[in-house]
Design a protein around this nucleic acid. Structure first.
Length: 271
DNA sequence: ATGTCGTGGACGCCACGA
């Protein structure tokens, strides 16, 4: 499944776990099975990362989480330095339906950066956008605009990875016709991906492992996984100069008891 | 595709987000 990596390779991965607390048994067994050097997590959904097992396996952990929603982390066994919890000018979100309080934007726990074994890496949980007419949609676009400015100033080699909540092309959803009028596929969102590519990043498209499309997310409902009705929204953007040995999606992590609705994406690279 | 999860507050269900 995972193939062989050369001695110089750095194995990085990204995984939206949909609660690290609920996923802890799956996460712990996965760390021992796949042995990533650096693992970026999204939607930890907790203020306190359950770190005991990962630390026993030799990982250092940078976690940015503040409770029930969001939460991102970087686990590294090749060093963890210069941790950034969020980023400069990161926009907040003000709930529009709160008439009792001043609408103070809340900066959410959606980004963490660190330097691991000579690689600068960011774990992102990009705002979902909800619907085209929701205030969350311009928030999503603004958030990505501001993060672009961060990428422009970051050192190389650089990897920006996580749950982008954007399908880069029409082929990255099971049926583009089902997405008419929806978020995740609009030109506005894809323009933000293009803006990252223009800064010298490359979309590392993983091998699909099964079927023809490398989907990373399947809704829990309606048997979407078994019908292969998924989306590629968990992305790995690597700076030019990084050599990719292999990139694959771990569909097995979406099977069995108590899976996340997202699959991990694993990339073996040389800096 | 709308069939399921996860969280936490006030519970043995509901609201919310995805």
């Amino acid at each position: 499944m995972s193939g062989e990596r050369s001695g110089q390779a750095l194995r990085i991965a990204t995984w939206n776990v949909n609660s690290v607390t609920a996923r802890l048994p799956r996460l712990n067994e996965w760390l021992e099975l796949v042995e990533p050097d650096v693992l970026c997590l999204q939607e930890t959904k907790t203020a306190r990362f359950p770190s005991d097992h990962a630390e026993a396996l030799g990982y250092e952990i940078a976690h940015h989480g503040d409770g029930r929603w969001n939460g991102v982390a970087i686990l590294s066994r090749v060093g963890l330095e210069d941790v950034s919890l969020g980023f400069a000018e990161q926009p907040g979100y003000a709930p529009e339906d709160d008439e009792t309080l001043l609408a103070v934007p809340k900066v959410e726990a959606r980004a963490v950066g660190a330097t691991c074994g000579g690689l600068r890496i960011w774990s992102l949980y990009v705002p979902n956008g909800r619907s085209l007419d929701s205030p969350h949609f311009p928030y999503k676009l603004d958030w990505l605009d501001r993060f672009r400015d961060v990428v422009a100033g970051e050192p190389r080699p650089l990897v920006v990875t996580g749950d982008f909540n954007i399908a880069p092309t029409d082929d990255d959803v099971w049926d583009i016709k089902a997405f008419r009028g929806s978020t995740h596929v609009t030109p506005d969102e894809r323009a933000r991906l293009s803006a990252l590519l223009e800064l010298g990043l490359t979309d590392v498209v993983p091998r699909p492992m099964k079927y023809d499309k490398p989907f990373t997310y399947y809704d829990y409902r309606a048997g979407m996984f078994h019908k292969n009705m998924g989306m590629r929204i968990d992305l790995v953007y690597a700076s030019t100069g990084i050599t990719v040995q292999d990139a694959w999606i771990d569909r097995d992590a979406r099977k069995g008891t108590g899976p996340s609705d997202h699959c991990p994406v694993v990339v073996d690279l040389e800096l």
